[in-house]
Design a protein around this nucleic acid. Structure first.
Length: 643
RNA sequence: GCCGAGAUAGCUCAGCGGUAGAGCAGCUGAUUCGUAAUCAGCAGGUCGUGGGUUCAAAUCCCAUUCUCGGCUCCA
């Protein structure tokens, strides 16, 4: 009996029934067989040693395939576990999956404590074990057998995992002396793993539940070649140089102070310029899009948030109420702007003809984030949203939503963010009590969001359980320098708060109706946006945003007068920058300006002073030759136009 | 909030039981210079904070604050 095997190039070959992936790879080429890690059989990844009994279309997976890497790293997690068991007999194992880059294993070390210093010893053990070329052997086991094995090892985590599995679908994998519960697949043997780096140790709750015990999570990454590990390490070092916390300090954009409080950023003068440019950019875009700017206070009466539901949901985990000499009075630092905007809506009766009403505010809000969550500017306790609330009729929701998508995309495009994910954040259907409002309105809102995104041709991923408590969202996610994903822009459809605040408008039928609210923030928060922007451009901001756009560098003190004249002329044209009239050599001044990532350096000496010219040097690009001062200003203005 | 690591001059870091160190930045002076660091001198820290052990603590122990890596959370 033969089986028909289709290959990715469309060709078909016949092999004896029970043929293994390894055989197929070898029949194609020796090189492929040498690099083969696994095989995709009808879309499912299998071990190369697993017999294929039916016709199938297959693809041999190597390191160059994403699922090849995943398999490689999953097998590496087993190797890590083998090393841990060898070094620390009696450790208990949780789970050990592959992740985007690398893998981890959650382990219970019992009474042992364990720091990053211990990692080198484990790495070495892994390398030693890898050299044994131990095959990863798959074995079907019954549930009883499986439970029996881990009962003997007294591993409560594996026992818990097995208990949730169905008899008949349980497999073990063994390499060397280490046996693990695992559905596979794996690479053929440990010898493929040539380079190992354990990157960090962290605590992680068993099964991600903070009520459970915290296990020790060991993160690592492995490669088939040492060179690839070296490249990876180099890449990580480069990424660290882009970290907005590092650049924020170096470029004097923002700072934190223990006395002010954790998570409460201080914007330094240069950071403030950056931030105000962004605000101005957004204000302009919003005026064009029909928004009305409003301003509301930083605090609001407690009842405002009782009405909105925020108090019930977040009250005890928030900054606590502010009290006044009047004992019955309580104010909250505003964690959201929407309730204030609802009150603005209510200042007068609204007609269906007035809608949509779009109220926009750069509103600073305060949220008591858990201390361990704070992270540079991306996660803070006080931040400014480029917030707006659109109050509209039900028939206007989709149109308005699409307009907001366009605005968000305009922002991203203007700043060169092309690597974002659009995420439709839905309710967790298993946990509906976490949300307010009626089912049918949620369903409607979720449908409208998806339709609007589809209509704009946006590729989206839907994620359950990520909605706000009052409504579903469309979130725009962007990764930071170190690969961590952050939410920037967000658009939310909300049928609930208008009801709670008893908002209404008079329809064409002369009846009272409840409007729909769209919450939206294209930047999300200025703080987080600036953080991601810093990392995105590695501190080399576009000219229109750069805190210092030019540095005027006299060759020597003899030309300080001319340099000052040039500098004043530029300032008169609203060009930002500095005059470096220190008693330093020009090489030094250039170096310092380059380090500060100032886009243009204007070098002036005898030649320039004589002819009213400037020698232009561009950051990172070197000498651009000399032009007249007027010409420079004209060119600059063109290049510096804000989008 | 939880697990682990850390905090030394403005910045980056060395020192890890025996009277606080370097480079850069800063200040002063010399130099007046043509595209990524001119030279010399000076000054600068109750070693995060509070307790403890010790003849002696930056160094060891405890607590606390903040930072970092994750986990949980994220209106």
């Amino acid at each position: 009996m033969n089986v028909k095997i289709s290959l990715p190039d469309g060709s078909q070959r016949e092999y004896p029934q029970g043929v293994k992936g390894a055989d197929i790879a070898l029949s194609i080429s020796e090189g492929l067989a040498r690099n083969a890690l696994a095989i995709e059989v009808n879309g499912e990844v299998w071990d190369l040693a697993r017999p294929i009994t039916n016709d199938a279309s297959v693809k041999i997976l190597t390191w160059n395939d994403k699922s090849g890497k995943t398999t490689f790293w999953h097998s590496s997690a087993h190797l890590l576990a083998e090393a841990l068991e060898a070094l620390y007999p009696g450790v208990k194992f949780g789970i050990g999956p592959a992740i985007d880059s690398g893998f981890y294993y959650d382990v219970d070390l019992g009474d042992r404590t364990f720091g990053e210093g211990d990692l080198v010893a484990i790495e070495n053990k892994m390398k030693e074990l890898a050299k044994k070329d131990s095959a990863y052997v798959r074995k079907d086991v019954s549930k009883t057998e499986a439970l029996d094995y881990f009962n003997k090892k007294a591993d409560p985590y594996k026992i818990e995992l097995i208990s949730g599995l169905q008899d008949g679908s349980i497999t073990f994998y063994q390499q060397g002396n280490f046996v693990d519960l695992c559905k596979g697949p794996h690479i053929p043997h440990t010898g493929f793993i040539k380079a190992v780096k354990l990157t960090n140790v962290a605590g992680a709750y068993w099964r991600g539940d903070e009520k459970n015990k915290m296990l020790t999570r060991i993160y690592g990454i492995t490669f088939p070649k040492q060179k690839e590990l070296d490249e990876y390490v180099h890449l990580m070092e480069e990424a660290k140089k882009r970290d907005h916390r590092k650049l924020g300090k170096e470029l004097e954009l923002f700072a934190f102070s223990e006395k002010v409080g954790m998570g409460l950023p201080l914007w330094l003068p240069k950071g403030t310029i950056l931030r105000e440019r962004l605000e101005q950019f957004m204000r302009k875009a919003q005026v064009r899009a029909g928004y009305d700017p409003v301003v509301t206070p930083h605090i609001g009466g407690k009842s405002l948030y009782v009405t909105s539901g925020h108090y019930e949901k977040y009250g005890k985990d928030s900054f606590q109420p502010i009290h006044t000499p009047d004992e019955n009075e309580e104010f909250l630092l505003k964690p959201m702007n929407c309730p204030h905007h609802c009150e603005i809506y209510k200042t007068k009766p609204r007609s269906y003809r007035d809608l949509p009403i779009r109220l926009a505010e750069f509103g600073t809000v305060y949220r008591y984030e858990q201390s361990g969550e704070l992270h540079g500017l991306t996660r803070v306790r006080g931040f400014t949203q480029d917030d707006a609330h659109i109050f509209c009729r039900p028939d206007q929701v989709k149109d308005e939503f699409i307009k907001v998508i366009d605005l968000v995309l305009h922002v991203f495009k203007s700043l060169g963010f092309d690597n974002y994910t659009a995420q439709v954040s839905l309710r967790d259907p298993a946990n509906k009590q976490k949300y307010i409002g009626q089912d049918h309105l949620w369903d409607k809102a979720e449908k409208e969001i998806q339709e609007a995104a589809d209509e704009r041709g946006l590729k989206t991923v839907a994620v359950e359980g990520e909605a706000a408590f009052y409504g579903p969202k469309l979130d725009f996610m962007v990764k930071d320098a170190l690969g961590r994903s952050w939410q920037l822009g967000t658009i939310q459809v909300d049928y609930n708060l208008p009801q709670r605040f008893e908002l209404e408008y008079v329809g064409s039928d002369n009846q009272r109706h409840t409007p729909v609210m769209i919450h939206r923030a294209p930047f999300g928060s200025l703080e987080r946006f600036v953080a991601v922007l810093i990392e995105h451009c590695a501190g080399n901001f576009p000219l229109w945003l750069a805190p210092d756009q030019i540095a005027v560098l006299p060759i020597s003190e003899r030309f300080n007068d001319y340099a000052a004249k040039v500098f004043d002329a530029l300032k008169a044209q609203d060009i930002r920058g500095l005059l470096d009239d220190r008693d330093e050599k020009i090489g030094r001044k250039i170096r310092d300006a380059e380090t500060k990532k100032i886009p243009f350096m204007l070098i002036v000496g005898e030649r320039e002073a004589a002819e009213n010219r400037v020698a232009v040097r561009k950051h990172g690009q070197g000498d651009q030759g000399s032009v007249s001062l007027d010409e420079f200003v004209n060119n600059f203005k063109v290049e510096c136009a804000a989008p």
